[in-house]
Design a protein around this nucleic acid. Structure first.
Length: 859
DNA sequence: GTGAACTTCGTTTTT
DNA sequence: CGAAGTTCAC
């Protein structure tokens, strides 16, 4: 358990990136040619196969980034190309930064000279600024953020007199996003899509939106790729120029590319017949988790067809995880179809290594307590908190952990969440700067005309709009003219006049004042700083800090316009990684990271796999969820601890839950089903514990709320968290005796077998797959109330060697068809179908429902 | 035009 | 249950 390699590295790493770097076994690369040493055969092959199309299938932890950076270093060192002749694209700024940094290390200096290493978007902007006039923009166009975008759409919808309840702006935004992800201009969208929104006005609105962007001299994120695609398509001379320029093209995370990105790449990688591009795409189809935002796994699956004769290199030697972790992950992901197929292996085999642990907790609070306890135990053994992470499926899960860690005084850090630039105060401040630099930036102007409150509401804005539209001038200019007239009442007119004059003054200062000072002046004189100073809310001080931080960060740029240009794309800021803290984040944001110990809570049906993925994505939705699970598992280096709870509060109501099907897909050989720490009282008592049953008020009338709240407050495990659950928690019965008893297997349409009826999961909208009976309680069922007291449900397995089969005794249900039963919420009914511990009951009044048998009594 | 009551709805997120 | 957005009375 406590193997020596667990000890802290001699040098204290400063951050996640640094740790990741060190951990990937990056050779010191002190000499300039050192980039080749320490590579395994496949990695070396990937680095040296510089000519022609190459697809590198890099499994988790196989040194993907290392290959990419070494390859670039190799191209440079062998003088195959100048830095400016290499196009290297990533998805995130972080990845781009890390690559720059590491190449710099290898080559011996910072690679300032790689102008075309960056994100799809930053490279798109670069191209677009060069040729902006070809699509009707000026090269100083603004990049809209999502807020601006929504506001603009709202205006358009209003102009169309559309009911914004029925046709929300956000819906149209995501629709348009989808089109742009596919590289479709308004005239190219399919007929069906065009009709989909607002009774056939989709296309027209899209066109109107694009027109409006042009007049605003603005582009949204989708345009940053759309426009370049159209430019390259329509201007062969330019395309040829880029073909000559980019002698080598590299793409990171190819499995995440969407259609637009694919089209863009394909244009750039196009070569005359008989020639092949020097294109290297690196990715892992098993880690494709962004299908929901337009990523096409198909791009990577199709690579060999797109580029006949492509060389495919598999990186399967894993340098990160123990054999148990890899074994579990491999077995799980094998349940997906349509993979390119890789099997990770490692030499890290040690009988001392922990198996992947699966543990059950009664409810989410106990889950947080138990994980907190485990973290403290590890900490006492000398493990750094920085080496531990909790990876959740959905961000609402984070809260429980945060609450728990606060009471424990355990340092934690939430990764993800609203990013710095997305915060309201930052966007407001930026809007002030934008208008200062570009008085025609209507969207920015609108954002802050009445922030802080100046008494300029809808009426005033509307007037401004009408005037501006009539004269075809920007809003600020319209304001400038209107304050001379009598259109406004005195008070709004004065307010408007002040803004107009302020912006004029600030605009003049841009040239002779230091930009950081000017920024401070603007926020000061506009009353924006004062607004937060007078705000008594808890967040206000933090917001002021953020504003300070914003101004401080402007120091890194040499002018206000320069700063704004950058901030639109590179808007993330570093987290303070100096303190030792447990990381809490979603599985999505964990991709690419690694930790000694990884906790994976919440493996329950409905949450993980998420019900919505199942409902909306069907089989492929499930497979993407499975890939997420795979990503989660493969983040762990030494220890992976999976948890699932029997009861979870969803939308404020306690619901009993069923273990994730992914648990059943784990191999027995690498996984152990752990008992929850004894201090939590072990597993539940008999399901028929009368007291427990009657106290778990599944249906609490409104008048009982206060009472319930009081009970909840006294619910064991408050501050201390070490209290056992008391009388209900003790029982002589073996926890597993209460396992779900599923006898029958069900055959899916695809021929695989499952232990659940397929209908339980598919086709049910907006309703997590939980026992009906358990819904409607605002109090957690007490432990021992006996739902899913077992560690894991299971039955005979089809795939051999999978988890649990042996650990659960098969007990037939005590009910059979035709039995009369009573249910607290639904009343009396007749059992129609018995499915293990799940019953389908025809209730006399409530109709047919599926319930867990623990919730009904025989009558 | 603004704050307070009321309704709605509930993944994942980068740029 | 709680956040976010919306409506409604001053």
């Amino acid at each position: 358990m406590n193997d020596s390699s667990d000890k802290l590295p001699p040098m204290k790493p400063s951050g996640i990136a640094a740790r990741a770097l060190a951990a990937r076994g990056a050779a010191p690369a002190t000499t300039h040619a050192g980039y080749l040493s320490g590579l395994n055969d496949e990695q070396r092959d990937a680095v040296e196969s510089t000519e022609g199309p190459v697809l590198v299938l890099a499994g988790a932890g196989t040194g993907k980034t290392r290959v990419l950076t070494s390859r670039i270093a190799h191209i440079l060192a062998t003088k195959r190309a100048h830095p400016s002749q290499i196009l290297a694209v990533t998805f995130t700024n972080k990845a781009a930064r890390e690559m720059k940094h590491r190449i710099g290390h290898m080559v011996g200096q910072e690679v300032e000279g790689m102008p075309w290493l960056g994100t799809f978007h930053s490279i798109g902007v670069k191209m677009l600024r060069r040729h902006a006039e070809l699509v009707g923009l000026r090269s100083n166009f603004t990049i809209l953020d999502t807020d601006d975008q929504i506001r603009l759409i709202k205006q358009l919808l209003q102009a169309e007199q559309l009911d914004d309840k029925r046709w929300p702006a956000k819906m149209f935004a995501s629709l348009m996003d989808g089109w742009k992800n596919k590289g479709l201009t308004p005239d190219q969208i399919p007929q069906g899509d065009a009709r989909a929104f607002a009774e056939g006005r989709g296309r027209k609105l899209y066109q109107a939106y694009q027109d409006r962007l042009l007049t605003l001299n603005a582009a949204d994120f989708g345009d940053l790729l759309m426009h370049p695609i159209n430019i390259l398509r329509n201007h062969p001379d330019l395309l040829a120029e880029y073909h000559r320029r980019f002698r080598y093209i590299l793409v990171d995370e190819y499995q995440d590319t969407n259609i637009a990105q694919y089209l863009w790449l394909r244009l750039l990688a196009q070569r005359p017949a008989g020639q092949q591009p020097n294109l290297c795409c690196v990715g892992d189809d098993d880690q494709s988790i962004y299908g929901w935002r337009g990523a096409e796994v198909d791009n990577i699956l199709r690579f060999e067809k797109d580029f006949p004769g492509a060389k495919v290199i598999r990186l399967e030697r894993n340098y990160r995880s123990t054999q148990h972790i890899l074994g579990a992950a491999a077995h799980l992901i094998a349940h997906n179809e349509g993979r390119l197929g890789k099997t990770l292996f490692t030499d890290l085999v040690d009988p001392e290594h922990d198996k992947v642990a699966v543990t059950n907790a009664w409810d989410s609070e106990e889950e947080a307590r138990a994980i907190g306890e485990e973290i403290e135990q590890l900490q006492r053994k000398g493990h750094a908190l920085n080496d531990m992470a909790i990876l959740v499926r959905a961000s609402f899960q984070m809260r429980g952990f945060e609450d728990r860690f606060v009471t424990l005084g355990l340092n934690y850090r939430v990764i993800g969440g609203p990013r710095f630039y997305e915060r309201m105060e930052i966007r407001d401040a930026l809007a002030y700067f934008r208008v200062t630099v570009q008085p025609a930036d209507d969207l920015a102007f609108e954002r802050i005309v009445n922030t802080p409150k100046r008494g300029l509401g809808d009426v005033a804005i509307k007037l401004l709009h009408e005037y501006a539209r009539a004269k075809n001038i920007p809003l600020l200019a319209a304001a400038g003219e209107l304050i001379e007239g009598e259109e406004f009442k005195p008070r709004p007119r004065a307010a408007l006049a002040e803004i107009v004059h302020n912006f004029r003054r600030w605009g003049e200062m841009v040239t002779h004042m230091r930009h950081t000072d000017l920024a401070e002046t603007i926020l000061e004189e506009s009353g924006y700083t004062a607004m937060w100073q007078n705000d008594r809310s808890a967040e206000a001080p933090g917001r002021l800090d953020n504003l300070k931080e914003l101004i401080r960060s402007m120091d890194d740029y040499d002018s206000l316009p320069g700063f704004l240009e950058h901030i639109a794309l590179v808007m993330d800021t570093e987290q303070n990684e100096s303190m030792d803290a447990v990381s809490i984040m979603t599985l999505h944001s964990a991709k690419g990271l690694e930790f000694e110990t990884v906790f994976l809570p919440g493996w329950e049906e409905g949450l993980f796999p998420h019900q919505r993925s199942l409902d909306e994505g069907g089989r492929s939705g499930l497979e993407e969820e499975r890939r997420l699970a795979y990503v989660g598992l493969t983040r762990g280096k030494k220890r992976v601890k999976i948890w699932f709870v029997s009861n979870r509060r969803i939308h404020g109501l306690w619901q009993s839950t069923i273990p994730s099907r992914f648990l059943e897909e784990l191999p027995e050989a690498h996984v152990e089903v752990a008992e929850a720490s004894s201090s939590y009282g072990g597993y539940g008592a008999s399901r028929w514990d009368q007291d427990a049953f009657s106290t778990s008020s599944y249906q609490t009338p409104g008048w009982k709320r206060a009472q319930a709240a009081a009970q909840a407050g006294g619910y064991p495990g408050g501050r201390d968290g070490r209290i056992s659950y008391g009388e209900n928690g003790v029982s002589g019965s073996n926890p597993r005796d209460n396992a779900a008893r599923r006898a029958d297997k069900y055959i899916n349409r695809d021929g695989t077998t499952r232990n659940e009826p397929a209908t339980g999961f598919a086709g049910r909208m907006n309703e997590p797959y939980v026992a009906q009976a358990s819904r409607g309680s605002n109090q957690p069922p007490r432990k021992g109330a006996g739902l899913y007291s077992s560690a894991i449900a299971g039955g005979p397995r089809e795939i051999s060697g999978e988890l649990i089969a042996k650990s659960v005794a098969e007990t037939p249900s005590q009910f059979s068809e035709g039995d009369r039963v009573f249910h607290l919420k639904f009343g009396n009914g007749t059992v129609a179908i018995v499915d293990g511990n799940k019953l389908t009951v025809d209730f006399d009044k409530a109709g047919q429902k599926r319930v867990l048998e623990g919730f009904v009594q025989p009558i």
